[in-house]
């Protein structure tokens, strides 16, 4: 298992993601375009599916909200996206955005691992990590 540096995507990163094994819940979803969310600079991305019309996810580099998050992946995760190791991939987490930020959550159990050179992507699973698929992005009172 390898610890990974969780960096935001850079301008050189691929603007198309391809999930060879699909996305749980949306078996037909294979490819997504990645665009910044909003007109001004922000760390948030919109992932829009080509196969499932209307399917879109909001994703963010986890360090934006969870600086302590250090997902560890086995070699099968890197293999699945044809990456040699941690230097070749970026990590994003999917947000569930509600009308108030206090209700919004991030899926830390199933981070997206993206080969930054090719766009090959996988929703990994951190089994046994204790991470929740619905982690609040702000502390609840």
């Amino acid at each position: 298992m390898t610890a990974i540096t969780v960096l935001p995507p850079t301008d050189q990163d691929h603007a198309e993601l391809h999930f060879a094994s699909g996305v749980p819940g949306f078996p037909a979803a294979r490819s997504f375009s990645v665009t910044p969310w909003g007109t001004e600079p922000s760390p948030f991305f919109l992932l829009e599916c080509h196969e499932v019309i209307g399917l879109r996810f909001v994703a963010v580099p986890p360090a934006v909200f969870f600086p302590w998050y250090e997902p560890r992946f086995g070699p099968e995760v890197f293999q699945a996206v044809d990456a040699e190791g941690t230097d070749d991939v970026r990590v994003l987490v999917i947000l569930t955005v509600h009308s108030t930020a206090e209700k919004s959550t991030a899926n830390l159990l199933g981070p997206l691992v993206v080969n930054s050179a090719t766009g090959q992507a996988l929703q990994a699973v951190l089994s046994g990590s204790g991470h929740s698929p619905a982690t609040p992005i702000v502390k609840r009172p």
């Binding site: 996305v23 749980p24 819940g25 949306f26 399917l55 879109r56 996810f57 909001v58 999917i94 947000l95 569930t96 899926n107 159990l109 199933g110 929703q123 699973v125 698929p133 619905a134």
Partner: peptide
């Protein structure tokens, strides 16, 4: 994961 992705969508 399925439930989380459907919610996120």
């Amino acid at each position: 994961l399925t439930a989380a992705n459907r919610q996120a969508a």
